[in-house]
Each structure stands twice: as C-alpha cells, then as structure tokens.
Simulated scan of single mutants.
Amino acid sequence: MPYLKRFVNLITEEYDLYLTDEPFANGLLAFIISSIKNKPLTVTLRGWGDLTNAHNEYSNLKFFFLRLISNFVLSKADRIIVLSKATATELNKIYNLRRFYVIERPIDVKYYSGGKRSIKYSIPTILTVTNLRYKNKFRGVVEVIEVINKIKKKTGNDVVLLVAGGGKYLDELKEFAKKFDFVEVLGFRKDVPDVLASADIFVYVSYLDAFPSVILEAQAAGLPVICNNYGGLPESCGWAGIVVKDKKDLEQVLSKLLTNKKIQRKLRYKSYKKMKKYNAVAVEKYVRVWDETIKEYK
C-alpha cells in the first residue's frame, strides 16, 4: 500500500495502540500517526541484520540515514519488543534500547506439524532449511556437509542430507554439493511441512540469526533438532533441542543421534511438548505488554 494511502487509512481510523515491526519508513510513519492521535507506539524488532548492516547491503551514506531514523523512532517508542536476548545485545552496541521486552515469535504450529512425507529414502535422512541469500548461512550449510562427510568416512553408514532454501548462494552450493554423493539440494520449496515430514533429524548451523523460526518449524514437525551456539539460535532451540559448541561437537552429537533411536524419540517428544504450548505462551506475553502500554498511556 502506498504511504499516502496508508497514512490516510491510519489517520481516519481509531486505534488504542500503534505497532510497527521496523523503525525505518514504517516506523517513522507509525510514530507520526501515534503522535497526532496521542496514542502509544510499540516497535517489534525481528533481528539485527538490517539495523546494524550486518549483511553489508547498504552504503555508508544510506546506513547513516537509516541509523538516524531508527535511533529517533526507537527513542520515541513506548515499548520495544525483541525476539531474543541476543538481538538486544547486538542492537545495544549501536542503539540505546530502553524498556525492551524479549518475546518469542509465534508460528503456525498446526501448519508445520501437518506435513506428508514427500521425499522418501530408506536410509537416515537429515534436513537443513535455510536462506541462501546470506553468506553466513551458506557457510553454515557447508559446515554441515563437511561434518556429515566426516561421519560417513568414519562409520561407513549411509545417510542423506536434504538442503532446502533459495537465494544468491544456491548455485554455489549446488556446485559444492557435487563433490558429495549424499547431498540433495532441493532449492526453494513452498511445501516446507512436507519436506520437514520427510526427515529424521533437523540440523541448523548459521552465523547470522536473531531467532530462526525454521528451528521452531522443525520442532513443530516433531523433529529432533541440533543447532550451533551462535546469536539467537540457542534461544530458538531452547530446552527441547541440542546446542553444539563447534564442528567437532556437532560431529560427535550427530554421529550418536544417527545410530540411537532412543535419543531420537526422546528429542521428538521434547519438540512436541515444547511446541504444544509455545504459541499460547508467546501470545500471552505480547498481550500483556500491549495491555500494560495502553493502560500506562491513559
């Protein structure tokens, strides 16, 4: 919706609270409307990549102005919500986040738990789903492939790795994967629930993530989850999965999990148990903060 039309729509309607999920153009618009209407403003920050230029996608000049606008909007917000403690830590290196709350991102648990097995292998199937737009996520996939290759060489056991996700590093990944006969690069997939249902174990390694929802999606599908200890990954994984320290640790944990059905079942149950109440808890936190903000403003 064009900004003028959006402005007219917001100015003619009555709301108790204005919400925005970024402090750039939409954030500035939300601040202007909330000021005119004399209503509170809440900003939800989904990550730190854009706000810190971690992807190196902005020129110095563009980032200077984006940072200027963000600082202004965040300083005027009545409440700031971040998805993870890691997000708050990274953002506080540049911005002064005042009155922030850490609240997890809800997901459609029913949708991700309802997949049908569409890719069928008779051998253990490992899955990773990522956004290959970013080099630091591509790097994580390469690391997973290298670790599985080591496990195969040591044990001689058959295994397949499915890699789902699109982005500018997809072609580079396909070229790299040609060296390994156990890797199937699926590319971008719309049928994520079916892909999740096709796996036995979910592994996610990334070096740029605030709170990856793909880990929650895998847990919603009832998969055992392993992730690395970076950024918001441990917070997303929580008590239901396994967080590894490094490549050596990943090799040991994954090797054991591949051959131990009992541990797989235990982790599957943990995923199910966590996600059964996950959304209700997250939504309750959001509503509590919104209600508190509205009451305080009156």
Rank of each mutant, 00 (worst) to 15 (best):
E146I: 03
K5T: 15
S59A: 01
G187C: 03
V159Q: 12
K5F: 13
L10A: 09
G114R: 14
L267G: 15
G166Q: 02
Y111S: 06
V142H: 05
P40R: 02
Y111D: 04
Y272E: 08
P40N: 04
K5V: 11
D209T: 06
S213N: 13
V243N: 05
N228H: 08
F7E: 07
K178P: 07
T12I: 07
K154C: 10
S122C: 09
N60R: 14
L267K: 14
A197I: 12
V244R: 10
I201H: 11
I263N: 11
V195H: 04
T89M: 09
A164K: 09
F202L: 10
V141R: 02
M1P: 13
K245R: 08
P234L: 06
D171G: 06
N131G: 00
R105I: 06
D200Q: 05
Y230H: 10
D108R: 01
N279S: 03
R288C: 09
V43M: 03
F138A: 13
K152N: 08
I36M: 11
I80G: 02
V82Q: 05
R189Y: 02
D249Y: 10
A199N: 08
R268E: 10
K262M: 11
L127P: 01
V109C: 15
V244F: 15
Y58H: 13
P212W: 12
A54I: 15
K137H: 04
V281S: 08
Y286S: 03
T130L: 08
G156H: 02
T20A: 07
L208E: 12
K273R: 07
S59D: 03
I119R: 07
R67W: 09
F64R: 13
D291A: 15
R265Q: 11
V43I: 00
H55A: 11
A220Q: 06
F138N: 14
I11N: 09
G115P: 06
A221F: 06
V144Q: 05
S213R: 12
L19R: 01
G115Y: 06
Y101G: 02
G165A: 15
G47L: 09
L196F: 04
K285Y: 07
F176N: 06
A218K: 11
